[in-house]
């Protein structure tokens, strides 16, 4: 099966020359990525997450590059915000998937089932909501953590905020 046939059923759109987007349901992603890798998409250049808070979904985006076909294939999938879990692609792409998944776990709180190490990467002693989620009120958090109304030198800030 060629790579075109693998993604044929999911209405791939051609963004421009050699740049293809495809939306795939959550439970099919693992198998499709496995097949795509066998067909030559061996480079996972990045894995990112978008928070569509109005829809109640997280969109996970995998960017795959093929040295054989010189094609950048963007695989997207949506998962529920409430139940943010997806099967890890660590067994397919190994360390390059591991580090991205670890970061996305930290910043968005998505659980990648099967990833061996999802320990914190940048944040230490973080007890709040994952900071890149849209419902994390970082302004409020910064004010309560770093600023103090009684502090003389921060008076100017508070004058604006309390207006």
């Amino acid at each position: 099966m060629s790579w075109e046939e693998i993604i044929k059923d999911y209405n791939p759109t051609i963004q421009r020359e050699r740049r293809i987007w495809v939306n795939i349901p959550k439970d099919k992603v693992y198998d499709i990525l496995q097949n795509l890798k066998n067909e030559g998409f061996e480079h996972l250049s990045s894995l990112s997450v978008t928070d569509w808070i109005d829809e109640g979904k997280f969109e996970i985006t995998y960017h795959l590059w093929s040295y054989k076909f010189k094609v950048l294939l963007t695989v997207k999938t949506k998962i529920d915000r409430e139940e943010a879990k997806i099967k890890s692609i660590y067994p397919i792409y190994d360390r390059s998937a591991w580090i991205h998944e670890r970061e996305m776990h930290e910043l968005f709180g998505i659980e990648f089932i099967g990833n061996p190490d999802l320990s914190p990467l940048f944040l230490e002693d973080w007890n709040e909501k994952p900071p890149f989620r849209k419902d994390f009120d970082w302004r409020e958090y910064v004010r309560s953590k770093y600023y103090n109304k009684e502090n003389e030198r921060e008076k100017a800030y508070w004058e604006v905020w309390l207006k």
Binding site: F122, L123, P131, W138, R139, Y141, V142, K145, Y146, Y147
Partner: peptide
């Protein structure tokens, strides 16, 4: 100044 992760 309003970053959640930077000391002031």
């Amino acid at each position: 100044w309003d970053s959640y992760n930077t000391i002031k």
